[in-house]
Amino acid sequence: MIRVEDVHKYFGTLHVLRGITLDVSKGEALVIIGPSGSGKSTLLRCINLLVEPDAGRVFIDGVHVNRHDINREWVRQQVGMVFQSFNLFTHLTALENVMLGPIRVKGVSREQAEDKAKQLLARVGLAAKANAYPAELSGGQQQRVAIARALAMDPKAMLFDEPTSALDPEYIREVLDVMTALAREGMTMIVVTHEMGFASNVARRIVFMDGGVILEEGHPQEIFEHPKQERTRAFVSKILR
């Protein structure tokens, strides 16, 4: 479903991604862990082309997407993204946040978009909050609206960039539950997270990134209990505490 081939990215002289190769099959939930600055977010952004890779190729559903002659707006519609800081549209209600993309990008009618948005909000457990503005919602609620907003575009895959890192502990569970349900329904997802419980439950494979390369990958149990690399071991021991 998603294939990344030897992708490099420079920010000025900083070599952020140093040749990443990754394959995510349809319906797989892949978890990426790694210290901050290791290039995890940049990798996600290279997949939906919010950041343009400097070298290498990205495929989504068999389509080579980082060519010059491709419509980048189209590519981004294929892959939903959820951000660490939610980034809900401040001036719109929860319902309008979910409706905006389908109406303005896909040209869906207002009624259809509204029906679908209501369904999606119900799916993330927020039917009652449809008319609330982001500022009136808790962090966990905002993040669930953000997931609904991404799903409204019918993406082929979802990218989660540390979706629970900005949340108060009491709200983490509700967001992870939504994500777990999504994975169980067979959504292809790449999740950058340090939630080890979630990773063990949902992922068949965990990738450990450091310094812009993939140092190690494997089954959650393997990575958490018997990491091969010294740096993986050091990192895992820190997050498991």
Binding site: W74, R76, G80, M81, F83, N87, G101, V105
Partner: peptide, 17 residues
Amino acid sequence: HTGQVEAARAIGFSRWK
């Protein structure tokens, strides 16, 4: 906030939209 634009771009908005 720049995150607003990023979120819009991520669901397929052009710069203008």
